[in-house]
Each structure stands twice: as C-alpha cells, then as structure tokens.
Amino acid sequence: MESANRDSADVPGLCPDCGQSGVRLYRVRATGERFWVCEECDAAWRPGADRSKFDTDLSALLPDEPNPWKAIERADGPRQVHPQQALIDLAANGELSGLWLGMHRTDALTVVDAPHAPASDRVVTAGDVSLTFEADRLVGIAVRLPLTGIRWPGLMSLSSSPRLTPAPRSEALKALQDVNVKPLPDTSPDDRTAEFQAVGRRIRLEFDQDLLSAVSASVARS
C-alpha cells in the first residue's frame, strides 16, 4: 500500500470505508490546507495518514464549518480556470476566497480578521472588502479594485482561490454572459455600471475608464 500514502494529486484510490473510488485531494479555500477526502462518504485523511484504513471524516476535520463542502475545493491536478473565475464564482455562486453569502457573521469576520467588530455594525470593512450583515448572516460582499492592488484582509490574503482583478469592461461582461448570469430587468450596462441577477443574488459591477473598479454581490430581496 505504499502508493496509498503518497500525498500527491495524481493518486486517487478506493475508500476503505465505503469501497468507492471517490478519494480525491482537496484543499481549504481560505487557508490552502490539503487533505484527502472520499466524495462518496466524507471519510477524510490528513497529510501522511495511511489511506488504507479509516482516519477521520470531513466534519471532524473542519468542526467549525456548518457545511464543510462549501469551504473546500478539489486540488487534484491542474484545471482550466477562466481568466475571470473569481468574478464568476462571486456572481454565480456568491463565493469569494473563503466567504459565501449566507454564512454566519462570526465565521465571515474570522475570514477577514475582524472578529471583534461590534455586533451593531451592519457593514464591516477590512482592506478593500466590505461585508454587509443581517440577522447574523452575511448578505452582501463588496470589493474595491484599485489599480494599485487589492488589500485582501485576513485569511483572504492567504487563499489560493482565483482573485478579482481590474479587468477590461468587455472581458468582465463576457465572463458573466458565459455562465448565463442575466442582466437585471429594466437595466442595461453602461460605461459606469452593470447590474445582474442569478438565483437568489444580485450582482453589481462598477467601471472606471473602461476597467472593472468594484464588484458587489448581495442576497436578492423577494
């Protein structure tokens, strides 16, 4: 079983717990920490653990995550990444470098290293990222994109996830069109702004001299 202990991305294998061939290498989006996990039964193995026998499970490995699958991503080998993947992830999925719309306030503040922000603060700004909360849930993520470089706060600065960039306006708009994010009804993109909708979300892009200068995603109001 020598190959079962290799911590490289090219050695998937059978799960000793469920017998399925779903063991893959994953990483935590916010920290880059890697481990093996069975996509069928959630059995998990820490780096160096003997994958021929049960080690732990995903919930035990990430006990502070209410939904651990939301906090991790596949790390087994290269993947084709859209140049504006971070924009797509935020618009289509409400996710950005360890944050996601709907997560608990405490978890979101930990990601941006602002755990002691007063509970009365509906909007908390850290670096170039602003978070909006409602009833202890994250309902809005906004990011400024200065040409001098984005100041990513806390764990976001360590994340290996794709990064937002001041992309050309045409490139940013095409990225959202490619994943069928629809323009907000009764609006049309102009030189300064563009607003879109996805399932349960609204997305707003702002432009400065034909470059993307700010992005925000928020929970849609019914």
Rank of each mutant, 00 (worst) to 15 (best):
Y26Q: 05
A91I: 04
R163W: 02
L164H: 15
N180F: 06
R137I: 14
F196K: 07
R105I: 01
L176I: 12
D178A: 15
T31V: 06
L61H: 03
V112A: 01
M103S: 08
V11E: 08
L205Y: 08
A135Y: 08
L61E: 02
L14E: 11
G102V: 02
G140Q: 06
L62E: 03
A108W: 02
T187Q: 04
S97P: 03
A30K: 05
D190S: 13
A220V: 12
P12K: 00
K182C: 10
L212V: 09
D7F: 13
A220I: 11
S213D: 11
L205T: 14
K53V: 15
Q209K: 14
R204E: 14
R221K: 12
L173M: 09
A119D: 13
L173S: 09
A172I: 04
R6Y: 10
W100E: 14
D7C: 07
R105A: 00
E33T: 06
C41V: 00
Q209V: 13
R51K: 05
M1S: 11
N67R: 15
P66I: 00
D190E: 10
K70M: 12
Q80P: 06
Y26N: 03
T165V: 12
G102F: 01
S21L: 10
N5G: 15
A220F: 11
R137N: 14
G200Q: 10
A142F: 04
L62S: 01
A198W: 03
Q177D: 09
K53M: 10
V215K: 06
L25N: 02
A9F: 09
D208L: 13
I203R: 06
A75K: 01
M156G: 07
I203D: 04
L58E: 00
G140K: 10
A119W: 09
R204W: 10
R74Y: 02
T56R: 02
N5W: 08
D121R: 08
E195D: 08
A91E: 04
A75E: 02
P162Q: 11
P168N: 00
D208V: 13
D17V: 14
S3H: 10
P153A: 02
G13A: 05
D64M: 08
G22A: 02
F54I: 14
A30V: 03
D128G: 07
D107E: 12
E95H: 14
D76N: 05
D210W: 03
G154P: 03
L147I: 08
A172W: 03
A71C: 05
L14K: 08
G102C: 08
P168M: 00
